[in-house]
């Protein structure tokens, strides 16, 4: 196997710029009086939702509620990978009914996580609309799922890895692509 090659996709400044653009894009796609809620997918989607909520609050002057969703129990591959030992907390602070709920995740790949998140959200309520905002869209979809707001698009092969680092968990903000790091 050739040695894996690591590329920087977003550095700290580009990361901040991208998030800001995503926040504006979310606002543009949310008709004004409808209340928002941001739902981050465990793990790093949760941190990104916190950042986006802060940016949105700055733009609009209003608090934006945000929650966290762990989709482990809604996965379609328990049979294959076995149970994941640690399931993160799920909490949704507000009633979803009538709101525009934005699912926030770090990387969009096969679309299976989003499929699971849609199922799980449906068990919590009936939002007026559900949007999807991702920091990186790496292609490679296995389900008919597309994001409404995309920070950065990068074409990848199945063996590549896209790694997202956030200050809260990793000490720095960055997105890196590891080429050929995984299996083909």
């Amino acid at each position: 196997m050739p040695p894996s090659e690591r590329q920087l996709l977003l550095d700290e400044r580009a990361f901040a710029r991208t998030l800001h653009r995503m926040a504006l894009d979310i606002l543009r796609q949310t008709p004004d009086p409808v209340p928002l809620v941001l739902v981050g997918i465990q793990r790093r989607g949760v941190e990104l939702a916190v950042r986006l909520a802060a940016l949105l609050a700055k733009e609009t002057g209003a608090e934006v509620p945000r929650g966290a969703l762990d989709i482990t129990l809604y996965r379609d591959d328990l049979e294959v990978v076995g149970p994941r030992p640690l399931v993160g907390p799920t909490h949704l602070p507000v009633d979803l009914d009538g709101r525009v709920a934005w699912i926030v995740d770090d990387v969009l790949f096969t679309g299976r996580t989003v499929r699971a998140a849609l199922d799980e959200l449906a068990d919590f309520g009936r939002p007026a609309r559900i949007g999807l905002a991702v920091l990186v869209d790496r292609g490679g979809r296995e389900l008919p799922v597309q994001a409404d707001v995309v920070g950065e698009r990068v074409p990848t092969s199945p063996g590549d890895k896209v790694e997202v680092f956030v200050k809260e968990l990793d000490g720095r903000d960055a997105v890196e692509v590891v080429r050929g790091g995984g299996r083909p």
């Binding site: 591959d77 049979e79 030992p85 790949f109 063996g159 890895k161």
Partner: peptide
């Protein structure tokens, strides 16, 4: 129940290659 219901570990390694996303 959840931990015991785990599926086929021989498939797990192969599945780990494919990302979760």
């Amino acid at each position: 129940l959840y931990l015991l219901a785990g599926g086929k570990p021989e498939l797990a390694e192969a599945a780990k290659g494919a990302s979760d996303r």
